[in-house]
Design a protein around this nucleic acid. Structure first.
Lengths: 224, 224
DNA sequence: CGAAATATGTATCAATTGTTACAAAACAGC
DNA sequence: GCTGTTTTGTAACAATTGATACATATTTCG
């Protein structure tokens, strides 16, 4: 068992290797191996164990009604799986998880994990921080989606990136990536960039966006 | 101190009055009183305490750039406040909280609350369930918003309400309320209802919606 | 440097939704 | 049952965005 890697897992952050070893000696768990493309869990299955990927990587996929699989995200070692679904009213896996390559996964029953949380304050704090951050992330994403127009989204994005002090933003993504982030098509985003430039709100030179009129930009955001 | 009321708080669910009293004797906390329209916390303030409303009710409000306040939600006794922001990377209040009437609020430092979580498995479970459920709620809401067209949203909503077994849904909200839920205007929703009826997907009689073609409805959902 | 690949700007047209307005229907209270 | 209020159905038009296509920049890499 590689305790060194485990301490890099968000849940064990700040725990020394020795501590981790001591703690895990008091707790029941098992390590399972999966080979490439083997299914780890099926969507809808109840979440009875905390899963932590010890080595390799997996992908989460949803299967829609027509049978098409849609990749949701990749998760790599040493990250935990579906931490937000260990507890809660509907503790079923939201996605089907499949091994990307040869994978080792630590499985720990919920009851054992609860013991662990009560044994060690640091781990408790880590876990609480982890699911709270997730809730905050989702909340922010929801807020972001509440902007109806593309201009509103762009304004919000740019103002967020720039913060209070700066007046220009260095884009680190292509327009296509931004468009995906905003949930719009690439030409639509380009059009909006063009319009905002014509209106004197921003100036785009290569990958740098200069915010010329922060006031008007904030007003754009409020037009829900 | 009314321990009976406290046991009705989600965090203390399943705890007897005596247990609650015993536990709280080991923990530091204070009860503060606020009068009507008094500000309890200001948005942006760090969340250092767990707040539980012991009596009365409060409202959460956001202040937008133009200075307008927008009511987000009402919270009544004996519910906790901003549980998802006690931990996490950005533990600041997302909203300004104001008393709706005379209010008593229990405040418990995070460090004391952590102790409480480690003292009692039931409370730990309750709290984990609470924030996990919130994350799940947000996740579902996000999924709901991912349907681009109004038809998709309506199809999802109706199929969800009906479940696997039923073929008709009793609407308990007005079109206006549904439209707000979907984030669209009322006439647009009415138009979509009309179109779906013309297409033979549903039949609307008063407040009852009969699903005539579940298959086509599920297909509508997949047109993201 | 030069060619191929990738990214961006732009145009046209279709589809969807919002806006506004008004009539018909359903409902509530007397 | 009648009247005023709320809810629902519908229409015409505007605004926004998506789809598609193609030209032009820009980057990458040999």
């Amino acid at each position: 068992m590689n305790y060194q890697l485990l301490t890099q897992c968000p849940i064990f952050r700040g725990i020394t290797e020795k501590e981790a070893e001591n703690l895990l000696n008091k707790i029941h768990f098992q390590i399972k191996s999966y080979s490439k493309d083997e299914v780890v869990v099926v969507a809808g299955e109840p979440v009875l164990n905390l899963h932590i990927i010890v080595s390799g990587s997996v992908r989460g996929e949803m299967i829609d009604f027509s049978g098409k699989t849609i990749k949701i995200e990749d998760i790599e070692a040493p990250k935990p799986l579906a931490t937000a679904f260990l507890f809660g009213q509907e503790n079923k896996f939201p996605v089907t998880v499949t091994a990307n390559n040869d994978v080792k996964i630590l499985g720990m029953p919920v009851s054992e994990f609860l013991k662990l949380l009560q044994l060690n304050t640091r781990i408790l704090k880590n876990y609480l921080t982890s699911i709270s951050s997730r809730a905050q992330f989702l909340s922010q994403k929801l807020h972001f989606l509440s902007f109806k127009t593309i201009k509103g989204k762009v304004a919000h994005f740019l103002l967020n990136q720039a913060g209070d002090t700066f007046h220009s933003v260095e884009l680190k993504n292509t327009q296509q990536q931004l468009a995906d982030l905003f949930g719009v098509t690439r030409p639509s985003l380009a059009r909006v960039f063009g319009e905002m430039q014509k209106e004197g709100l921003i100036r785009i030179t290569n990958k740098t966006v200069t915010l010329l009129d922060k006031k008007s930009l904030t007003e754009l955001m409020n037009n829900v």
